[in-house]
């Protein structure tokens, strides 16, 4: 985990959005939460969500499958969430 003094995002309000089967498994399209202690990156948040209940565990159970975007730009799990307004979790895209 990252340096808590420089990357701390705790207490920050974040909109979390879910798409496709991640949305169906979680059971909602969007929620607003306060970033908990110890969550500094998108990957940290995914782990924290996965421990939140059976439906979240089901959505996030396969590590590396669920993708993320931060303020509508694709990011890797290591991306820091400090200062972000919105994070989204979704399956690999299948457009075109």
């Amino acid at each position: 985990m990252s340096d808590s003094r420089t990357d701390a995002a705790q207490g920050q309000t974040l909109t979390v959005r879910y798409f496709a089967w991640v949305r169906e498994k979680v059971g909602c399209a969007e929620e607003v939460l306060e970033v908990p202690v110890g969550v500094a990156t998108v990957g940290d948040l995914a782990l924290w969500l996965a421990a939140r209940g059976p439906q979240y565990a089901d959505a996030f159970q396969r590590p590396g499958v669920v993708r993320a975007a931060l303020d509508k730009v694709h990011v890797k799990p290591a991306a820091p969430i400090r200062g972000a307004q919105e994070v989204a979790f979704f399956p690999p895209v299948t457009g075109g």
């Binding site: 798409f19 496709a20 089967w21 975007a69 694709h74 989204a88 979704f90 399956p91 895209v93 299948t94 457009g95 075109g96």
Partner: peptide
């Protein structure tokens, strides 16, 4: 690029 980057999902 569109197939691997644009945020669309097919059901």
């Amino acid at each position: 690029y569109l197939k691997s980057r644009a945020p669309f999902w097919k059901k």
